[in-house]
């Protein structure tokens, strides 16, 4: 059978390479019984639509940020809340907590989908950065900084809490917006700064570790359940190995990305994250007090941070 897989990534990107690897491994491990045909670059439509098609079984696999499951269970939006975790480990523990796993199961039910393997197995990028016109080295530099965000209340409110002046812009307008000064900064995984050429117009890059991102492989539930146990196992194995492949790819390349960007004229700026995280703690306390956060959220975060 042929599985159709939709992704936002281009085939040349790291994400695209990992997805191709997955497709290749699935074919190998299932002895060619399952062929995965990849549609890169959002060719089959915007995420919302693609997810609908996945639920209906028109396509069989979608790879996307775990946070996108928030369309089924709102609480999942908060798994990409900015400045909550210091590293991927902490976040990974949080994601594998009973609380989050419960949300994920709920989402699987609601979307008629199954999440392959461990939700944090495949990192989507090494870390997040902010690219800006003028260096961002301290919390004060966020003050009044016109930062691009997408239309998401949590992101907008969080960045406003940091003192930034948020502008909503579609991704394709970011370069031009920076060029013309409509915005002064954009947040992004480090891997996208080079291909999007943001360094040409925002040459100062500060590492923010804003939030860890993982790539989830979502499979249509009926498709998955229709497979024999051996086949299911083969697909899971392909996913696990593709995840390792992605990790290695990111590890091997992150330094080279930094060097390339520097040789293209970008400057890496040291940003003191301590005060940023501290300021954001206040934000989450306020949200919690207002009853906006999911039940048990801050406790699960604290548990994952201190373990």
């Amino acid at each position: 059978e042929t599985w159709r897989m939709s992704t936002q990534a281009s085939s040349e990107s790291f994400e695209g390479q990992a997805i191709d690897k997955f497709a290749e491994l699935v074919e190998t491990y299932t002895d060619g019984e399952i062929e995965v045909r990849v549609y890169p670059n959002e060719q089959l439509g915007k995420l919302d639509t693609v997810m609908d098609q996945l639920g209906q079984g028109v396509i069989q696999v979608v790879s996307t940020s775990v946070a996108l499951l928030g369309r089924y269970v709102e609480a999942i939006d908060y798994t990409s809340a900015p400045f909550l975790f210091e590293d991927y480990e902490q976040w990974s523990r949080f994601m594998n907590s009973e609380l989050v796993q419960g949300w994920v199961s709920e989402a699987e039910e609601a979307g008629n989908i199954e999440v392959l393997g461990d939700v944090t197995a495949m990192p989507r990028g090494s870390y997040r950065v902010i690219a800006s016109e003028t260096p961002v080295a301290s919390l004060e530099d966020f003050d009044g900084l016109r930062v691009r965000q997408w239309s998401n209340d949590l992101m907008v409110n969080a960045w406003e809490h940091l003192g930034a002046e948020v502008r909503i812009l579609s991704w394709s307008e970011v370069y031009d917006g920076l060029n013309r000064g409509l915005i002064q900064a954009v947040t992004s995984p480090i891997e996208l700064i080079e291909p999007q050429k943001f360094y040409e117009v925002a040459p100062n890059i500060s590492r923010t570790n804003e939030y860890p991102q993982a790539l989830a492989f979502l499979v249509n539930k009926d498709t998955m359940e229709g497979l024999s146990p051996e086949m299911q196992e083969a697909v899971e194995r392909a996913h696990a190995e593709a995840s390792t492949f992605m990790e290695d790819l990111l590890d091997a390349n992150v330094e080279e990305i930094v060097t390339t960007l520097e040789s293209e004229g970008a400057t890496f700026v040291d940003l003191d994250l301590g005060p940023v995280v501290e300021r954001m703690d206040g934000f989450y306390q306020e949200l919690d007090a207002a009853g906006e956060l999911p039940d048990g959220f801050l406790d699960a975060v604290a548990a994952a941070r201190t373990e």
């Binding site: 370069y175 291909p195 999007q196 050429k197």
Partner: peptide, 18 residues
């Protein structure tokens, strides 16, 4: 310029928008 289509191509081809 400006051109939405060229921005999309820059992303597809890994070339400079400028």
């Amino acid at each position: 310029p400006p051109s939405i289509t060229l921005i999309v191509y820059a992303w597809l081809s890994n070339t400079s928008v400028a």
